[in-house]
Amino acid sequence: MKKENANRVLKISILRFDPNNPKDFPHMQTFEVLEAEGMTLFIALNDIREHQDNSLMFDFVCRAGICGSCSMLVNGRPTLACRTLTSKLERHITLAPLPLFQLIGDLSINTGKWMRGLNGRLETWIHDKEAEFSFDKLEQKMEPELANEIYELDRCIECGCCVAGCGTIQMRPNFVGAVGLNKIARYHLDPRDKREDKDYYELVGDEEGVFGCMTLLGCEDVCPKNLPLQSKIAYLRRMMIKTSMKD
């Protein structure tokens, strides 16, 4: 932390609402927290909960930027709170839950349900009816570079930032989002998944899929894992157009 920032008193304004409490209504509440060296929003929010308001709801699990639980709007921008250092922010910070997901309370949202629905809809698993797996035999070979490319896309943590940063989904609530399109790109790349182009076309070859994207690319800007969403969406779109021409 820079010297001039030492001993700042942070003002953290949080959009609060407990949907389980019929008397509550959405409102902003501001807390003051003495900043410490290396402080993250994980540390600051826990400090508030422990010392100022023990009813404050938020979600952290790994607190290391790996699990995707703590996505929220930090000064209006979707990001992972656990790895956001307060020293990189102005003294006055506003926090709000990610939009579009079911609100559990305060900053806690139900991304799990949304993502599970998406995975079910896109069937994000290996499809291979002919697979003859033996527990005893050598594994199937794969080109090392291809394995790396698949891992690159497999790094998505389903945090929901791309969904919250998406313009399209505001108008098309069933849009699969960059998270969904990235998953399709991942399985399309994977030779173990025997689905064909036309199968993928069935899944995302419409306006709720790749043709719905308005190419605003907020997703790419906010993805905490820096996934190549823009190029994958463009690639899928070309592939889908080719597929549609074939039929």
């Binding site: 698993w125 290996i126 697979a131 797996f133 199937q140 891992y151």
Partner: peptide
């Protein structure tokens, strides 16, 4: 076989 992209 379930899809983990193990390094090769």
């Amino acid at each position: 076989s379930w899809g983990v992209p193990w390094n090769r």
